[in-house]
């Protein structure tokens, strides 16, 4: 039971941060939306469709960011064997998968009016699709075990192995670039996006990152609660004849401890 004493530190640390983080995220996304939809110029080539970029690029960023986060969590779980690292990786996966899917969907909705096709087998699109497969594989693996601890550990190992793919996604644009525009945000000679477009883009990226951390904290709490429930059920204290069971120490409930 006391194996989960450490995670309660997590709850104490995050409880005061969470409302501020949620508020900042809401403000950032609202401001980002205002600039993205009203107060930004249209692109001279792409017209209004450039407004999709303010969703597409942050989603792609989040998809990669979450995967790197999972790989780092996997490395930490490998080195320090801290259960929280596994839980964080596990809580990150659905968020990353959602953003990767959103990146593909918004990219598709941008590609149809601009290139005249919903999908091209371009290097970056394809790598993003592979990233989505990696997320789905991770989620399937983590949930395939009766013991969630075993699932999380296997998942951490898989995240590390799959992390080899993330640099391929990043640099594949230099290997084969066909219909897709060359990477224009992260370039060695500075961003090529017009300054008036950088502000909404930066706001949305920050807002999405904030959203990730808010949902991450909530999902880690959810995981901790579920582990606690499972530990209670397995402890045998709910059997009527288990009189000698180890006394249960309350106060680790993720929500009541606030």
């Amino acid at each position: 039971m006391h194996r989960f004493a450490k995670p309660s530190v997590f709850l104490k640390l995050t409880a005061p941060i969470l409302p501020w983080l949620a508020g900042a995220t809401a403000i950032l996304i609202a401001a980002g939306l205002y600039f993205a939809l009203f107060a930004s110029p249209i692109d001279y080539q792409q017209g209004d469709t450039v407004r999709i970029m303010y969703l597409h690029v942050p989603s792609a960023w989040m998809g990669l960011f979450c995967y790197v986060g999972m790989a780092i969590c996997g490395a930490m779980s490998l080195i320090w064997k801290h259960p929280l690292a596994d839980i964080c990786a596990r809580a990150t996966a659905p968020i990353g998968a959602t953003f990767t899917a959103l990146c593909l969907i918004t990219g598709s909705l941008w590609g149809e009016p601009m290139w005249g096709t919903w999908w091209v087998w371009d290097a970056r699109l394809t790598s993003m699709l592979i990233l989505l497969f990696l997320y789905l594989g991770y989620i399937a693996l983590v949930n395939a075990f009766d013991d969630p601890d075993r699932g999380s550990k296997a998942g951490s190992a898989l995240a590390l192995v799959g992390a080899v793919n993330v640099p391929i996604v990043k640099f594949s644009v230099d290997w084969w670039n066909t219909l897709h525009q060359p990477a224009s945000i992260v370039r060695m000679d500075g961003p090529a996006v017009d300054p008036s477009m950088q502000l909404p883009l930066a706001l949305m990226i920050l807002g999405f990152t904030g959203y990730y951390f808010v949902v991450l904290i909530l999902r880690v709490r959810l995981e901790l609660n579920e582990r606690r429930i499972r530990a209670l059920h397995l402890s045998g204290m709910f059997d009527d004849n288990a009189q000698d069971a180890e006394p249960y120490d309350p106060g680790h409930n993720a929500e009541t401890s606030q």
Binding site: I130, F133, L134, L136, G137, A140, L141, A144, F145, D146, R150, G151, A154, A157, L158, V161, G162, V164, N165
Partner: peptide, 21 residues
């Protein structure tokens, strides 16, 4: 990785095929 998992056979293809690309 899939030792001890439910539905190991399908799972292994989902895990391994993206890495084969």
């Amino acid at each position: 990785l899939i030792l001890g998992a439910r539905r190991g056979g399908v799972l292994v293809s989902l895990l391994v095929l993206p890495l084969y690309i």
